[in-house]
Design a binder for these strands. Structure first.
Length: 117
DNA sequence: ATAATGACTGGGG
DNA sequence: ACCCCAGCCATTA
């Protein structure tokens, strides 16, 4: 018989880079945003921006990780190809007070979070 | 172990 | 300024 609870995926021994990414993203303050590359750097892998996107892609619905506060280096939204509802990320950010430019980008100088300190 | 996969990025044209 | 592309790298779709 199958157990009622699925064990933790075999891939997650000790702590993966994904876990480090989630911890970093949880530190982004309400109403602020940061880039994939910056999350990667704060998580210990400055060149793993793409992997950060993959880590967020793996999050389940209803997660408490504020994935919507992560945008690309140009201030734009990058979830188009993932199947998430179009406009969802922008709506979540606007609910936190983040304003978008006419071209759909965010002013990183104003809303960008660059880490503690 | 190798290959494939991308929610990315910076630099060049 | 905008578009394109080669390089990037942890995880396994």
């Amino acid at each position: 018989m199958l157990p009622i609870f699925e064990p933790v995926p075999e891939s997650s021994r000790g702590e993966s880079f994904y876990d480090a990414v989630y911890r970093t993203v949880r530190r982004i303050p309400h109403g602020r945003v940061t880039t994939y590359g910056h999350v990667a750097a704060l998580s210990g892998k400055p060149r793993a921006a793409r992997t950060v996107g993959w880590a967020l892609h793996a999050l389940p619905d209803g997660t408490d990780v504020p994935w919507h506060r992560v945008i690309n280096a140009r201030g734009g939204i990058s979830i188009a190809k993932v199947g998430l509802p179009p406009g969802l990320q922008r709506a979540l950010l606007e609910d936190e007070g983040v304003r978008f430019r006419l071209d759909g980008t965010v002013d990183l100088k104003r809303y960008g979070w660059t880490g503690p300190g």
